[in-house]
Amino acid sequence: MSDGLILLENFLQALAAGLMVGCLYGLMCTGLGMIFGIMRVINFAQGDLMMLGMYAAWYLFTGFGILAFLGPYVGPVAAAIVAGPLLFIVGYFLHQFLISRVTGVSVAASDNQGHYAQLILTLGIALILQNGGLILFGSEPVSIRTPMSSSAWEIGPMVGEWVSVFLNKARLVGAIVSVLVALGLYVFVNRTRLGKALRASADNVEAAQYMGINVDRAHRIAFGLGTAITAIAGGLVATYYPFQPYVGIEFVIVMYAGVVLGGLGSIVGAFWGGMTIGLVQQLSTLVLPIQLQNTAIFAVFLLVVFFRPQGLFGKSVERV
C-alpha cells in the first residue's frame, strides 16, 4: 500500500472517529447548552454529573446487572437511557436546594455577585461529587464492556483491496442514539408547551413571569433536563471509554468548548459545537502525539473565546 493510500486511510479513519465521537460530544454539549443557555449559569459540576450518569449506567448494566437481561446490544443503550431520568431527579433537586439560591430573580439585583457565586458554588459541588464518587465507587477505572466495545464494522476496501474504515460498534451505536436523543430534545423544546415555557424563561424572565409561567419551576426542569441529557451521553461514552470518578474534568472542558463554539444560548449550536470538538480531537491525532489531543481541544477553545466569543454558529452575542 502506498504512502498516499495510508494517509488517506488514516484520514478517513480519523474523520469517521471524529464524526462518531462528535455526535456523543454534541449530545453532552446540548445538555450543558440547556443549562448555560436557559439560565446563564456556569455549571462546573456538569462533568461530574455526567460521571454520575456513567456510573448509573454502569451499575444498571454491569454492577447490579438489572438491565443485563436485555443482552449485550440493547442492554448498554437502555442503561444509558435510564440513567437520564435518574440524573434528571438529581439535577432537579440540586437546583431546588442549592443552585436556585444563587440564581434567578433573587440575585438579579446584585449584578456581578450572582455569576461569581454560581461559579464557586458549582465548583464546590463538583469537588464533592468527584471526591464523594471516589469514596463510593473507588478509584479503579471501570467501563461497560460488551462485545460491541471491541468489534467494528468495516467499510471498504474502497480502493482495490485497500483503504478500509473501521467503525467501532459501540461508538457508532452511541452516535446514532445521541442524534436521536438530540432530535427528541429539539422537538420537545420547539413543539411542546413545556418546551416553549422553558424557552420563554430563557428569553426574558420577567415577561415569562407575567405570562403566568412559573420561572423557578422552568429553571428546575431545565437544569434537570440538561443534567439528564449529559448523563445519557455519559452512559453512551461509558460503553467504549474506561472511567473513574475524576473523569468529569476531562469532559467539562470539552463541553464548554463545544457550547461556546456553538454560541451561548443556542441548543442546536451546542450540538454542532460538540461535533466540531470531536472532529478536532480525532483529526489532531493525525499530526499530534496522542497525549496532546486534549491540548488541541484547549487550544481550539482558547482561540474561539478570544476571536469569536459569540461562537461559530451562534447569533446571540453576549459579552459580559
Binding site: 455577585q113 463538583a126 469537588l127 464533592i128 471526591n131 469514596i135
Partner: peptide, 22 residues
Amino acid sequence: ILPGIQGVVFGTAIVLVILLAP
C-alpha cells in the same frame, strides 16, 4: 476508608461559605 475526604471537605466548605457568608 474514605479516600476523597479532603476534596469533600473543601467542596462542602465552599458550598457553605457561598450560602452563608458569600
